[in-house]
């Protein structure tokens, strides 16, 4: 088994699962019915993407490992998602901005993964890219609406930028397994993705009348299992059922 590929798959799957779970937490609490459903749809898309990736990772690992053991029986330190996706929902502005910052990264990433030297991963990326394209369209429009909306929505977007900006640097910082994956052609150059991300964020922020913060210190650690305090609480809720009643099925 290629350890670097396995770890990279966990990283991709964890990003999707954790963000999907975060969005699912506000199912029924959206600002209006239509956006409530939009966010729930995105949550379901993300959980579905994580399933595809975990099924592949579980096949690679073999033994008793399944998509469920990967999702429900690993502890926080074994999760490799970026810190951005585990940040709390906050207000609607923060939920939207977190989604946009992630989508603007995820879209160029998956677009390139479609040409990955790993054929299974390329197929998964191809299956996911249509959903991700819509997520990016949806979240960019909301960034523009809120940034360019009322004084209140504009201020809330600025607060969200303050809260989340320091988690964006980690997206483009190579972990050990990403370096190995890059060397073997599984993962494209993160710098190219960073360029595309910067251009997209600059573009949408300009339309929204929002300022990009000065270059600043950024958190990292998520990719190697060092998380913010929020992930433990998230997993406690997400994993409770399988921990309390092992093997339980729908």
């Amino acid at each position: 088994m290629k350890d670097h590929l396995y770890n990279f798959l966990l990283h991709l799957g964890d990003n999707a699962l954790v963000l999907g779970h975060r969005l699912s937490e506000i199912c029924g609490h959206g600002p209006i019915l239509e956006q409530d459903m939009a966010m729930t749809n995105i949550a379901l898309d993300l959980v579905g993407q994580s399933r595809n990736i975990f099924q592949y990772a579980a096949r690679m690992k073999g033994g008793d490992t399944t998509e469920d053991t990967l999702a429900y029986l690993r502890d926080a330190t074994a999760f490799k998602n970026v810190l951005l996706v585990e940040q709390k929902n906050g207000d609607f502005a923060k939920t939207i901005l977190r989604q946009f910052l992630y989508d603007a990264y995820n879209y160029p990433l998956y677009k390139r993964l479609m040409n990955s030297s790993d054929k299974d991963l390329a197929a998964i990326a191809e299956k996911s890219i249509k959903e991700i394209t819509y997520h990016l369209k949806w979240s960019s429009e909301w960034v523009i609406r809120l940034g360019d909306g009322t004084e209140e929505s504009h201020n809330r977007m600025n607060n969200a930028i303050q809260d989340l900006w320091s988690y964006t640097g980690e997206l483009f910082k190579y972990s050990d397994y990403e370096i190995s994956c890059h060397e073997s052609g599984i993962l494209p150059d993160l710098n190219g993705i960073a360029e595309e991300w910067n251009a997209e964020v600059k573009n949408i922020f300009a339309e929204a009348g929002l300022e990009i913060p000065e270059k600043a210190w950024s958190h990292d650690g998520g990719k190697r299992g060092v998380h913010s305090e929020h992930l433990g609480f998230l997993l406690a809720e997400m994993q409770f059922l399988q921990r309390a009643y092992p093997g339980q099925e729908w």
Partner: peptide, 13 residues
Amino acid sequence: EMAMQNGRDVYTR
């Protein structure tokens, strides 16, 4: 534009 997206999210799932 928002109506179109909402329509997509609510009525074509």
